[in-house]
């Protein structure tokens, strides 16, 4: 009984990590699909979202305003980045893109350090959600549940946007064949900017929502960025659907692995060895998982189109 409850609680934690990863992965994978652009600085937008949210929350005491500030702020930074810094890089090879956005990461981390200082800052859980809910015999924090709900709602919204609207049709077409969209007379630049800003806004949303449960500090974007990259590789580059399922899988596998791997190892080997190997294996688990997925399906689980990996 204890184990089942524990498992459920970890499962929910895994889902919560998964939806946050999805918010990041959606933007990154779309930007890749349409512009063939590798944006390592996507994690910086997540960090900016957290800081914008923290600043707004501290000044207004309204978490709603904090969310608006984070989404709007990160979206705006994304828009400015797209317009003024990155446009020239879209046509360049991936190496230049990696290098340029690597430079941007260092820049943003330092900028945050200058403005907000090097140590981590705290965002309180909003009062309305600072409680617990009983589900199936466990008490679970409402705030984390709210993250899951918001994440799923955004995923649904994205689904509607992409499958049911004209803009979504263009995004889908752009992800498969950007030249075709341009040939249709659509202003591809405008579409790029829109997608980039949308991705940035979602990253900002993830940042502010993660704010109360992680430590908000310079460089917080990088570990998340790398997890996000794993997600979009597993899901299949350019595929939103793949990003969604892969994000949930990665979130759950990572969380459950960290929770249960040490115990599992102890049942398999002697205690000392298990205590050494357990946490190591737990933190390496999703990378091994990724390796297995790629060994079987090099294009990821839900490839958007075959040509997209080049």
């Amino acid at each position: 009984m204890m184990t089942a409850q524990l498992a459920l609680s970890h499962l929910l934690n895994g889902l919560q990590l998964g939806v946050l990863l999805f918010l990041l992965a959606a933007g990154l994978t779309l930007v890749f699909g349409i512009m063939s652009f590798v944006n390592l600085a996507h994690g910086s937008l997540y960090m900016l979202g957290a800081y914008f949210g923290a600043a707004a929350f501290a000044n207004t005491d309204s978490f709603l305003l904090a969310i608006i500030a984070a989404v709007g702020g990160a979206g705006l930074v994304g828009l400015l980045l797209d317009r003024f810094a990155l446009t020239k890089l879209y046509a360049r090879d991936h190496l230049d893109q990696v290098l340029a956005t690597f430079g941007l990461i260092l820049f943003f981390n330092e900028l945050i350090r200058i403005i907000w200082g090097p140590s981590s800052i705290f965002i309180q859980v909003p009062k309305a959600l600072d409680s617990t809910i009983d589900i199936a015999g466990i008490t679970y924090p409402s705030y984390r549940l709210a993250i899951i709900a918001v994440g799923l709602a955004v995923a649904f919204g994205l689904y509607v946007l992409i499958q049911k609207t004209r803009v979504g049709m263009l995004i889908r077409a752009g992800a498969t064949n950007a030249n075709m969209v341009a040939a249709l007379g659509v202003n591809i630049k405008w579409l790029n900017t829109l997608v980039f800003a949308l991705g940035a806004a979602l990253a900002g949303l993830a940042g502010v929502m993660a704010g109360p449960i992680v430590s908000v500090q310079p460089g917080m974007g990088e570990p998340v960025l790398i997890l996000t990259l794993v997600v979009i590789i597993i899901g299949g580059l350019g595929s939103i659907r793949g990003a969604f399922f892969a994000a949930l899988i990665v979130g759950v596998v990572d969380t459950l692995g960290r929770a249960f791997m040490p115990t599992l190892m102890r049942s398999l080997m002697e205690r000392n060895a298990a205590d050494a190997a357990g946490p190591a294996l737990a933190s390496m688990l999703i990378y091994l998982f990724m390796a297995v997925v790629l060994a079987v399906k090099p294009q990821g689980l839900f490839p958007a189109n075959v040509a997209a990996t080049r």
């Binding site: 590798v38 991936h94 790398i226 590789i233 580059l237 990996t309």
Partner: peptide
């Protein structure tokens, strides 16, 4: 494993392995 992919995927996989 990494060379089963190319382009962007190769970049990301090598990063993930290093991690």
């Amino acid at each position: 494993v990494a060379l089963r992919t190319s382009g962007i995927a190769f970049i990301m996989i090598t990063l993930a392995f290093a991690q």
